[in-house]
Design a protein around this nucleic acid. Structure first.
Lengths: 157, 157
DNA sequence: GACGAACGTTTGTGGCGCTAACGATTGCGC
DNA sequence: GCGCAATCGTTAGCGCCACAAACGTTCGTC
Protein backbone atom coordinates (compact mmCIF):
# COMPACT_ATOMS: atom_id res chain seq x y z
CA UNK A 1 0.00 0.00 0.00
CA UNK A 2 1.21 3.47 -0.79
CA UNK A 3 -0.67 5.88 1.49
CA UNK A 4 -0.44 9.17 -0.33
CA UNK A 5 -3.32 11.34 0.88
CA UNK A 6 -3.68 13.82 -1.98
CA UNK A 7 -2.21 11.70 -4.70
CA UNK A 8 -4.47 12.67 -7.58
CA UNK A 9 -2.60 14.60 -10.21
CA UNK A 10 -4.48 17.53 -11.66
CA UNK A 11 -5.45 16.75 -15.24
CA UNK A 12 -5.16 13.11 -14.33
CA UNK A 13 -7.97 12.12 -16.65
CA UNK A 14 -6.25 13.70 -19.63
CA UNK A 15 -3.05 11.77 -19.08
CA UNK A 16 -4.43 8.25 -19.15
CA UNK A 17 -3.28 6.52 -22.35
CA UNK A 18 -6.33 4.30 -22.74
CA UNK A 19 -8.54 7.37 -22.50
CA UNK A 20 -6.42 9.29 -24.98
CA UNK A 21 -6.58 6.35 -27.33
CA UNK A 22 -10.33 6.07 -26.96
CA UNK A 23 -10.76 9.76 -27.66
CA UNK A 24 -8.58 9.77 -30.76
CA UNK A 25 -10.22 6.59 -32.01
CA UNK A 26 -13.65 8.12 -31.53
CA UNK A 27 -12.59 11.18 -33.50
CA UNK A 28 -11.29 8.99 -36.31
CA UNK A 29 -14.39 6.84 -36.34
CA UNK A 30 -16.59 9.88 -36.39
CA UNK A 31 -14.73 11.36 -39.34
CA UNK A 32 -14.79 8.14 -41.32
CA UNK A 33 -18.38 7.29 -40.48
CA UNK A 34 -19.89 10.62 -41.34
CA UNK A 35 -18.20 10.63 -44.74
CA UNK A 36 -19.16 7.05 -45.50
CA UNK A 37 -22.69 7.63 -44.24
CA UNK A 38 -23.04 10.40 -46.81
CA UNK A 39 -22.74 7.67 -49.42
CA UNK A 40 -24.87 5.18 -47.55
CA UNK A 41 -21.93 3.07 -46.47
CA UNK A 42 -20.32 2.07 -43.20
CA UNK A 43 -16.73 1.23 -42.39
CA UNK A 44 -17.38 -2.49 -42.56
CA UNK A 45 -18.51 -2.21 -46.12
CA UNK A 46 -15.23 -0.58 -46.93
CA UNK A 47 -13.22 -3.16 -45.01
CA UNK A 48 -14.88 -6.05 -46.80
CA UNK A 49 -14.40 -4.46 -50.22
CA UNK A 50 -10.73 -3.89 -49.50
CA UNK A 51 -10.24 -7.46 -48.34
CA UNK A 52 -11.89 -8.79 -51.49
CA UNK A 53 -9.88 -6.56 -53.77
CA UNK A 54 -6.63 -7.51 -52.10
CA UNK A 55 -6.78 -11.27 -52.47
CA UNK A 56 -9.75 -12.07 -54.65
CA UNK A 57 -12.84 -14.17 -53.90
CA UNK A 58 -13.08 -15.55 -50.39
CA UNK A 59 -15.40 -17.32 -48.01
CA UNK A 60 -17.31 -15.39 -45.38
CA UNK A 61 -15.29 -16.73 -42.50
CA UNK A 62 -12.07 -15.80 -44.24
CA UNK A 63 -13.38 -12.28 -44.76
CA UNK A 64 -14.39 -12.24 -41.14
CA UNK A 65 -10.88 -13.10 -40.01
CA UNK A 66 -9.21 -10.58 -42.28
CA UNK A 67 -11.49 -7.63 -41.56
CA UNK A 68 -12.16 -8.24 -37.89
CA UNK A 69 -15.91 -8.29 -38.47
CA UNK A 70 -17.62 -11.08 -36.60
CA UNK A 71 -19.08 -13.87 -38.70
CA UNK A 72 -22.48 -13.13 -37.18
CA UNK A 73 -22.36 -9.53 -38.33
CA UNK A 74 -20.73 -10.36 -41.62
CA UNK A 75 -24.03 -11.79 -42.85
CA UNK A 76 -25.80 -8.43 -42.78
CA UNK A 77 -22.82 -6.58 -44.27
CA UNK A 78 -22.69 -8.96 -47.21
CA UNK A 79 -26.46 -8.73 -47.66
CA UNK A 80 -26.24 -4.98 -47.93
CA UNK A 81 -23.29 -5.07 -50.29
CA UNK A 82 -25.02 -7.70 -52.42
CA UNK A 83 -28.18 -5.59 -52.58
CA UNK A 84 -26.09 -2.79 -54.01
CA UNK A 85 -24.70 -5.18 -56.60
CA UNK A 86 -21.18 -4.75 -55.29
CA UNK A 87 -20.55 -8.44 -54.82
CA UNK A 88 -22.14 -11.82 -55.43
CA UNK A 89 -22.54 -14.71 -53.03
CA UNK A 90 -22.38 -18.18 -54.61
CA UNK A 91 -22.27 -21.57 -52.98
CA UNK A 92 -18.79 -23.04 -53.14
CA UNK A 93 -18.90 -26.17 -55.36
CA UNK A 94 -15.90 -27.75 -53.66
CA UNK A 95 -17.16 -27.18 -50.12
CA UNK A 96 -20.89 -26.75 -49.91
CA UNK A 97 -20.77 -25.32 -46.42
CA UNK A 98 -19.13 -22.21 -47.77
CA UNK A 99 -20.13 -19.30 -49.92
CA UNK A 100 -17.75 -17.77 -52.40
CA UNK A 101 -17.89 -13.99 -52.24
CA UNK A 102 -16.80 -12.29 -55.44
CA UNK A 103 -16.34 -8.62 -56.14
CA UNK A 104 -18.26 -7.25 -59.13
CA UNK A 105 -17.04 -4.43 -61.39
CA UNK A 106 -19.55 -2.19 -59.61
CA UNK A 107 -17.93 -3.29 -56.37
CA UNK A 108 -14.55 -2.18 -57.64
CA UNK A 109 -15.96 1.21 -58.51
CA UNK A 110 -17.59 1.42 -55.12
CA UNK A 111 -14.31 0.57 -53.46
CA UNK A 112 -12.48 3.32 -55.33
CA UNK A 113 -15.19 5.77 -54.31
CA UNK A 114 -15.14 4.81 -50.64
CA UNK A 115 -11.37 4.59 -50.61
CA UNK A 116 -11.14 8.23 -51.60
CA UNK A 117 -13.46 9.21 -48.77
CA UNK A 118 -11.56 7.17 -46.23
CA UNK A 119 -8.25 8.57 -47.40
CA UNK A 120 -9.31 12.19 -46.98
CA UNK A 121 -10.79 11.33 -43.60
CA UNK A 122 -7.38 10.02 -42.53
CA UNK A 123 -5.76 13.24 -43.68
CA UNK A 124 -8.22 15.29 -41.67
CA UNK A 125 -7.68 13.08 -38.66
CA UNK A 126 -3.92 13.43 -38.80
CA UNK A 127 -3.95 17.07 -39.83
CA UNK A 128 -2.64 18.27 -36.45
CA UNK A 129 0.52 16.20 -36.92
CA UNK A 130 3.59 16.69 -39.09
CA UNK A 131 4.39 14.01 -41.68
CA UNK A 132 7.13 12.62 -39.43
CA UNK A 133 4.75 12.53 -36.49
CA UNK A 134 2.11 10.74 -38.54
CA UNK A 135 4.61 8.08 -39.50
CA UNK A 136 5.74 7.67 -35.93
CA UNK A 137 2.19 7.44 -34.63
CA UNK A 138 1.38 4.81 -37.22
CA UNK A 139 4.45 2.86 -36.25
CA UNK A 140 3.65 2.93 -32.54
CA UNK A 141 0.01 1.99 -33.08
CA UNK A 142 1.03 -0.90 -35.31
CA UNK A 143 3.29 -2.12 -32.53
CA UNK A 144 0.44 -2.03 -30.05
CA UNK A 145 -1.96 -3.69 -32.46
CA UNK A 146 0.30 -6.57 -33.38
CA UNK A 147 1.20 -7.14 -29.76
CA UNK A 148 -2.38 -7.06 -28.43
CA UNK A 149 -3.94 -9.30 -31.05
CA UNK A 150 -6.96 -11.43 -30.33
CA UNK A 151 -6.00 -15.12 -30.11
CA UNK A 152 -6.39 -16.79 -33.52
CA UNK A 153 -5.26 -15.95 -37.02
CA UNK A 154 -1.56 -16.32 -36.94
CA UNK A 155 0.77 -16.85 -39.80
CA UNK A 156 -0.19 -18.11 -43.20
CA UNK A 157 -0.30 -15.91 -46.24
CA UNK B 1 -7.12 -11.47 -63.02
CA UNK B 2 -4.41 -9.02 -62.12
CA UNK B 3 -6.05 -5.91 -60.72
CA UNK B 4 -5.69 -2.39 -62.04
CA UNK B 5 -2.37 -0.65 -61.43
CA UNK B 6 -4.00 2.07 -59.34
CA UNK B 7 -5.47 -0.56 -57.08
CA UNK B 8 -5.17 -1.29 -53.41
CA UNK B 9 -1.84 -1.91 -51.79
CA UNK B 10 -1.47 -5.23 -50.03
CA UNK B 11 -1.96 -4.88 -46.30
CA UNK B 12 -3.99 -1.79 -47.00
CA UNK B 13 -6.33 -2.48 -44.10
CA UNK B 14 -3.47 -2.62 -41.64
CA UNK B 15 -2.14 0.77 -42.67
CA UNK B 16 -5.24 2.87 -42.08
CA UNK B 17 -4.66 5.12 -39.05
CA UNK B 18 -8.28 5.21 -37.92
CA UNK B 19 -8.33 1.42 -37.93
CA UNK B 20 -5.06 1.19 -36.05
CA UNK B 21 -6.39 3.67 -33.55
CA UNK B 22 -9.61 1.73 -33.12
CA UNK B 23 -7.69 -1.49 -32.59
CA UNK B 24 -5.35 -0.07 -29.99
CA UNK B 25 -8.22 1.69 -28.23
CA UNK B 26 -10.17 -1.56 -28.12
CA UNK B 27 -7.19 -3.32 -26.58
CA UNK B 28 -6.87 -0.61 -23.96
CA UNK B 29 -10.55 -0.62 -23.17
CA UNK B 30 -10.55 -4.36 -22.87
CA UNK B 31 -7.63 -4.31 -20.43
CA UNK B 32 -9.15 -1.57 -18.29
CA UNK B 33 -12.66 -2.99 -18.36
CA UNK B 34 -11.77 -6.51 -17.41
CA UNK B 35 -9.77 -5.30 -14.43
CA UNK B 36 -12.44 -2.90 -13.27
CA UNK B 37 -15.15 -5.47 -13.85
CA UNK B 38 -13.34 -7.76 -11.42
CA UNK B 39 -14.16 -5.16 -8.76
CA UNK B 40 -17.66 -4.50 -10.04
CA UNK B 41 -16.76 -1.15 -11.56
CA UNK B 42 -16.69 0.36 -15.03
CA UNK B 43 -14.48 3.03 -16.48
CA UNK B 44 -17.12 5.70 -16.01
CA UNK B 45 -17.14 5.10 -12.29
CA UNK B 46 -13.43 5.69 -12.26
CA UNK B 47 -13.69 8.82 -14.40
CA UNK B 48 -16.33 10.37 -12.17
CA UNK B 49 -14.39 9.59 -9.02
CA UNK B 50 -11.27 11.17 -10.47
CA UNK B 51 -13.14 14.27 -11.52
CA UNK B 52 -14.63 14.67 -8.08
CA UNK B 53 -11.31 14.15 -6.34
CA UNK B 54 -9.58 16.67 -8.57
CA UNK B 55 -11.78 19.68 -8.00
CA UNK B 56 -14.21 18.81 -5.25
CA UNK B 57 -18.00 18.70 -5.28
CA UNK B 58 -19.65 19.42 -8.60
CA UNK B 59 -22.99 19.36 -10.39
CA UNK B 60 -23.91 16.52 -12.68
CA UNK B 61 -23.63 18.54 -15.84
CA UNK B 62 -20.19 19.74 -14.82
CA UNK B 63 -19.11 16.15 -14.21
CA UNK B 64 -20.61 15.28 -17.53
CA UNK B 65 -18.49 17.87 -19.32
CA UNK B 66 -15.31 16.94 -17.55
CA UNK B 67 -15.58 13.19 -17.93
CA UNK B 68 -17.17 13.02 -21.36
CA UNK B 69 -20.09 10.97 -20.03
CA UNK B 70 -23.43 12.13 -21.40
CA UNK B 71 -25.78 13.74 -18.92
CA UNK B 72 -28.35 11.06 -19.73
CA UNK B 73 -25.94 8.30 -18.85
CA UNK B 74 -24.49 10.15 -15.89
CA UNK B 75 -27.69 9.53 -13.95
CA UNK B 76 -27.20 5.78 -13.84
CA UNK B 77 -23.48 6.06 -13.08
CA UNK B 78 -24.18 8.31 -10.09
CA UNK B 79 -26.94 6.02 -8.92
CA UNK B 80 -24.56 3.09 -8.88
CA UNK B 81 -21.80 5.01 -7.14
CA UNK B 82 -24.30 6.35 -4.60
CA UNK B 83 -25.57 2.84 -3.91
CA UNK B 84 -22.02 1.84 -3.07
CA UNK B 85 -21.79 4.79 -0.69
CA UNK B 86 -18.97 6.35 -2.69
CA UNK B 87 -20.69 9.69 -3.11
CA UNK B 88 -23.78 11.58 -2.02
CA UNK B 89 -26.21 13.54 -4.14
CA UNK B 90 -27.79 16.57 -2.48
CA UNK B 91 -29.92 19.31 -3.93
CA UNK B 92 -27.95 22.52 -4.37
CA UNK B 93 -29.36 25.13 -1.97
CA UNK B 94 -28.22 28.03 -4.14
CA UNK B 95 -29.59 26.58 -7.40
CA UNK B 96 -32.34 24.08 -6.86
CA UNK B 97 -32.11 22.79 -10.41
CA UNK B 98 -28.77 21.24 -9.60
CA UNK B 99 -27.51 18.44 -7.47
CA UNK B 100 -24.27 18.72 -5.60
CA UNK B 101 -22.25 15.54 -5.90
CA UNK B 102 -19.80 15.02 -3.07
CA UNK B 103 -17.18 12.32 -2.64
CA UNK B 104 -17.35 10.34 0.60
CA UNK B 105 -14.33 8.89 2.43
CA UNK B 106 -15.38 5.51 1.08
CA UNK B 107 -15.34 7.10 -2.36
CA UNK B 108 -11.76 8.21 -1.86
CA UNK B 109 -10.77 4.69 -0.90
CA UNK B 110 -12.60 3.32 -3.88
CA UNK B 111 -10.78 5.79 -6.11
CA UNK B 112 -7.40 4.70 -4.81
CA UNK B 113 -8.35 1.09 -5.38
CA UNK B 114 -9.57 1.63 -8.93
CA UNK B 115 -6.68 3.94 -9.72
CA UNK B 116 -4.22 1.18 -8.96
CA UNK B 117 -6.05 -1.16 -11.32
CA UNK B 118 -6.18 1.41 -14.08
CA UNK B 119 -2.51 2.23 -13.68
CA UNK B 120 -1.38 -1.35 -14.07
CA UNK B 121 -3.69 -1.73 -17.04
CA UNK B 122 -1.94 1.21 -18.70
CA UNK B 123 1.41 -0.42 -18.08
CA UNK B 124 0.22 -3.64 -19.66
CA UNK B 125 -1.20 -1.74 -22.59
CA UNK B 126 2.04 0.13 -23.23
CA UNK B 127 4.29 -2.80 -22.43
CA UNK B 128 5.36 -3.25 -26.08
CA UNK B 129 6.79 0.28 -26.14
CA UNK B 130 9.94 1.77 -24.66
CA UNK B 131 9.55 4.58 -22.12
CA UNK B 132 10.49 7.13 -24.76
CA UNK B 133 7.96 5.66 -27.17
CA UNK B 134 5.26 5.75 -24.53
CA UNK B 135 5.90 9.42 -23.92
CA UNK B 136 5.87 10.18 -27.61
CA UNK B 137 2.64 8.25 -28.16
CA UNK B 138 1.00 10.10 -25.30
CA UNK B 139 2.15 13.39 -26.74
CA UNK B 140 0.81 12.64 -30.21
CA UNK B 141 -2.50 11.37 -28.90
CA UNK B 142 -2.91 14.44 -26.75
CA UNK B 143 -2.35 16.58 -29.82
CA UNK B 144 -5.07 14.70 -31.69
CA UNK B 145 -7.44 14.83 -28.76
CA UNK B 146 -7.13 18.53 -28.11
CA UNK B 147 -7.44 19.31 -31.79
CA UNK B 148 -10.49 17.10 -32.42
CA UNK B 149 -12.58 18.19 -29.45
CA UNK B 150 -16.34 18.03 -29.55
CA UNK B 151 -17.92 21.48 -30.01
CA UNK B 152 -18.72 22.85 -26.54
CA UNK B 153 -16.70 23.10 -23.39
CA UNK B 154 -14.04 25.57 -24.33
CA UNK B 155 -11.82 27.13 -21.76
CA UNK B 156 -12.73 28.15 -18.28
CA UNK B 157 -13.12 25.87 -15.29
C1' DG C 1 -45.64 37.55 -14.66
C1' DA C 2 -43.98 35.64 -18.96
C1' DC C 3 -40.21 33.53 -21.45
C1' DG C 4 -36.10 31.32 -22.63
C1' DA C 5 -32.47 28.70 -20.93
C1' DA C 6 -30.26 25.26 -17.90
C1' DC C 7 -30.68 21.10 -15.12
C1' DG C 8 -31.83 16.28 -13.98
C1' DT C 9 -34.41 12.52 -15.59
C1' DT C 10 -36.68 9.04 -18.54
C1' DT C 11 -37.04 6.76 -22.73
C1' DG C 12 -35.51 5.25 -26.99
C1' DT C 13 -32.20 4.45 -31.00
C1' DG C 14 -28.33 2.61 -33.51
C1' DG C 15 -23.67 0.88 -33.89
C1' DC C 16 -20.60 -2.38 -32.28
C1' DG C 17 -18.35 -6.53 -30.11
C1' DC C 18 -19.53 -10.76 -28.68
C1' DT C 19 -22.08 -15.32 -27.21
C1' DA C 20 -25.25 -19.09 -27.99
C1' DA C 21 -27.57 -22.01 -30.67
C1' DC C 22 -29.01 -24.52 -34.91
C1' DG C 23 -29.05 -27.00 -39.54
C1' DA C 24 -26.19 -28.32 -43.10
C1' DT C 25 -21.99 -30.09 -44.50
C1' DT C 26 -17.30 -31.75 -44.21
C1' DG C 27 -13.23 -34.51 -42.86
C1' DC C 28 -11.38 -37.94 -39.75
C1' DG C 29 -11.01 -42.13 -37.08
C1' DC C 30 -12.18 -46.38 -37.09
C1' DG D 1 -19.10 -47.61 -44.67
C1' DC D 2 -20.32 -45.01 -40.00
C1' DG D 3 -20.17 -42.02 -36.29
C1' DC D 4 -18.31 -37.86 -34.49
C1' DA D 5 -16.09 -33.61 -34.06
C1' DA D 6 -15.33 -29.56 -36.39
C1' DT D 7 -16.52 -25.86 -39.70
C1' DC D 8 -19.69 -22.73 -42.13
C1' DG D 9 -23.54 -19.62 -42.63
C1' DT D 10 -27.33 -17.89 -40.17
C1' DT D 11 -30.54 -16.16 -36.57
C1' DA D 12 -31.31 -14.30 -32.21
C1' DG D 13 -30.03 -11.90 -28.27
C1' DC D 14 -27.09 -9.41 -24.68
C1' DG D 15 -24.38 -5.48 -22.89
C1' DC D 16 -21.78 -1.37 -23.51
C1' DC D 17 -21.58 2.95 -25.35
C1' DA D 18 -22.67 7.53 -27.75
C1' DC D 19 -26.39 10.22 -28.53
C1' DA D 20 -31.21 12.45 -29.44
C1' DA D 21 -35.89 13.80 -27.78
C1' DA D 22 -38.89 15.13 -24.61
C1' DC D 23 -40.62 16.64 -20.00
C1' DG D 24 -41.13 18.99 -15.47
C1' DT D 25 -38.65 22.00 -12.49
C1' DT D 26 -36.12 25.95 -11.56
C1' DC D 27 -33.42 30.17 -12.62
C1' DG D 28 -32.46 34.72 -14.84
C1' DT D 29 -34.14 38.42 -17.17
C1' DC D 30 -37.15 41.55 -18.96
Amino acid sequence: MSPAPEDVTPERLRTIPSRLLAGAAAAGDRLVNERLAAEGARKWHFAVLVALAETGPASQSELSRRTGVYRSDMVAVLNELAEGGYLVRDPDPVDRRRNVITLTPAGRDRLRQLDALVTTAQQDLLAPLSPAERAELTRLLTLLDTRHRPPHEGGHA
